[in-house]
């Protein structure tokens, strides 16, 4: 049986992340984590673990960078 799709999806622009980890700390479902990817600014960027995002937007509003995080929400199908 196919599980229900996630309500949201988070995209991280790794090169704009400064690795402050605030998004990781506020995520209610704990689906963000620091990666071992050293970005071009020299920070270990945060990444999405791949599933479980609810699209709540806490990480978006907490993240200080204008373009580091994008949130998508599941379109309700008719």
């Amino acid at each position: 049986m196919a599980s229900r799709p996630d309500r949201g999806r988070v995209e991280i622009n790794a090169d704009e992340c400064k690795g402050c980890l605030l998004c990781v700390s506020v995520c209610p479902t704990q689906v963000l984590a620091r990666t071992t990817n050293l970005n071009k600014q020299g920070y270990f960027s945060v990444g999405y673990t791949g599933s479980g995002c609810t699209g709540c937007g806490f990480c978006f509003y907490t993240c200080p960078e204008p373009g580091a995080i994008t949130i998508r929400r599941l379109e309700k199908s008719a």
Binding site: T70, I71, R72, R73, L74, E75, S77
Partner: peptide
């Protein structure tokens, strides 16, 4: 069942 469609919600 079609693939779920995610539309932008919060972005730059």
């Amino acid at each position: 069942m079609s693939a779920p469609n995610y539309k932008p919600h919060l972005s730059r």
